[in-house]
Design a protein around this nucleic acid. Structure first.
Ligand SMILES: [Zn+2]
Ligand SMILES: [Zn+2]
Ligand SMILES: [Zn+2]
Ligand SMILES: [Zn+2]
Lengths: 153, 153
DNA sequence: TTCCTCTTGATACACCGTATCATAAAGCAG
DNA sequence: CTGCTTTATGATACGGTGTATCAAGAGGAA
């Protein structure tokens, strides 16, 4: 069941897609909705399970992976490569351009927060990497954390 | 075929194990050797394949995972959770205590460098995380990079 | 209509990680 | 040495994950 605000996000996602000539089909929209409404990242198969349960249909894995890849290419969804799970972008309704984000993952409850770490710090990080003879290619960090709620329990 | 320096590292690993009452059995030592001699991280099944090819035996997956877990617990091997691969520690022959390290992973050739990023920068990172209401639990970063060689090609 | 492109379905398969039970080896008391 | 205990390893089997491949449907353009 999608809340009003979820619908707003879906509408905005629809806009972003048409503006780039892409189609947010009903299945794509439904999978995005599942991720938006989830309080934690979902694996591809968890997405499939929820979709099947909701629709009574049976989505083959291949379809889910393709749809997820599509959503990622439109920056509506991010993939957490450390966990091989998917999470809806927190900035779909924002107007600003989406730059690379960092993800704080609670190791206890799996809740994820998408943030943008201060550019100066990321620059320092890149500099440290260069001192070691490497070049930082992506600044999408996935950090092992505790959320506030889990930290106080 | 293990080089002389590989043997030195294995000897040192042996010492570290006995000093904690653990046993670096021949299989454990052999898997560690495979990782030391590899120029890139290996998946568990790659480790198994190489071991089998070398020994003519057939190590079951469970054994490999157990042995890898043992090596990790002794900080002789690190697991790259972003790729689910294993890499030998670069500091086995060092005397200093092993603290949490960061890993630079070349996205082109998969070569990995284990470094320790300046504490000030890591502190800044932790501070940014706290501003978002989370607490950084592990500072083992796995950074998507290009190595010098791949960057110039 | 026909043709083309994009999207989705269906089957099958290879890989990855683990649960479980069984066996072997090593240490140790007597 | 014998027998017991602990640790290390083997063997089987299963469920989860990701992809290759071929097929079918939907939609738009001419
Ligand atoms: Zn985002
Ligand atoms: Zn939490
Ligand atoms: Zn190390
Ligand atoms: Zn490289």
């Amino acid at each position: 069941m999608s809340s009003n605000s979820t619908q707003n996000v879906l509408d905005k996602a629809q806009q972003k897609c048409v503006s780039t000539g892409a189609k947010l089909t009903s299945k794509r929209s439904r999978l995005l909705e599942l991720l938006i409404d989830s309080d934690k990242p979902l694996s591809a198969y968890e997405v499939i399970d929820r979709y099947n349960q909701f629709s009574g249909q049976s989505m083959p894995p291949m379809s889910a992976y393709r749809i997820l890849d599509f959503l990622i290419s439109k920056q509506l969804v991010h993939k957490l490569s450390s966990e091989n799970k998917y999470v809806a972008c927190s900035h779909i309704t924002c107007e600003h351009e989406h730059s690379v984000a960092q993800f704080l993952i609670c190791r206890s409850c799996q809740k994820v927060k998408e943030i943008m770490i201060d550019a100066g710090i990321m620059q320092g990080l890149a500099h440290s990497v260069e001192e070691a003879g490497y070049q930082l290619q992506s600044s999408q960090l996935e950090l092992d954390c505790l959320c506030q709620q889990c930290a106080t329990h």
